[in-house]
Amino acid sequence: MTVTSLGVPRRLLEFALDGEPVCVPEGTTLLDACRAFGKEIPALCQVGTLAPGGACRLCVVEVEGADALVASCCREAEPGMRVRSGSERVRHSRRTVLELLASSVDLSTTPQAMGWIEEYGARPDRFGPGAARSEEAPILDNGLVVRDPGKCLRCGNCVAACGGQGRHTFALAVSGRGAETRVGVEYDAPLTDSACVYCGDCLDVCPTGALSSRTEFDLRVAGTWDEPAQTATTTVCGHCGVGCRLTLHVQDNEIVKVTSPHDGPVTRGHLCIKGRFGHQYIQNRD
């Protein structure tokens, strides 16, 4: 029998969003509140399964009385707050943050990035040709998981998923400081030498495509990765009896990616190497 906790009913609180009074349950983040009322908020680093890390700062909104803008993913709505989700001040920060980010890393595989850059009129090239960028080449040290530091936003989502908020494997960590911050194994060792169990959970929470499966990476290099042409079918993994739900992404009759629905009842998006990557072996065999 499955027992579903209904939880304690949460009280509602009222605050002002762009001048309109709105009501949300206690504990709702400003980001969720904005979205619930149809406000478009660009939010790059926040994924529902992880605690907010506040890294990208694209989701900032203006809260009356606060000196600085606040990251809407990190702040819960409070009664009586006055929030502006798209003021000039907010748009300025979002535009500049997009410029800063796009001038330093490759956002070509970040879904929505191009749309936001256009919407906010960001000009990432304004810092000139001399602007420092992450130029490191993709790390191809194993056959399953590709890490591309040149695309990495340094949000730490992969670290959280691999560590304390997910697998408790702790293969990855954020290291360094300032512009030298990066994500990797201790002493920059290869992934093959780390605690990694190739569950691929980190791929799932990476907002930029800095982490991808080797299959996806190779197809992209070959120029044959074609997301619009892919179909997604959700099924149950047959490798063992746990019953993880798998979403198979198929392109030209081949499975090119496996994900798991984050709201899946059994594993909430987590998989293991067999579910995530087993298809490669199945396909290779025939």
Partner: peptide
């Protein structure tokens, strides 16, 4: 500021680099 930024958030991590440049 560029040298002391902890690197956690984008505006400071990259903004301090662009400011110095």
């Amino acid at each position: 500021f560029r040298a002391e930024s902890c690197g956690l958030c984008v505006p400071c991590r990259i903004g301090t680099v662009r400011q110095e440049e």
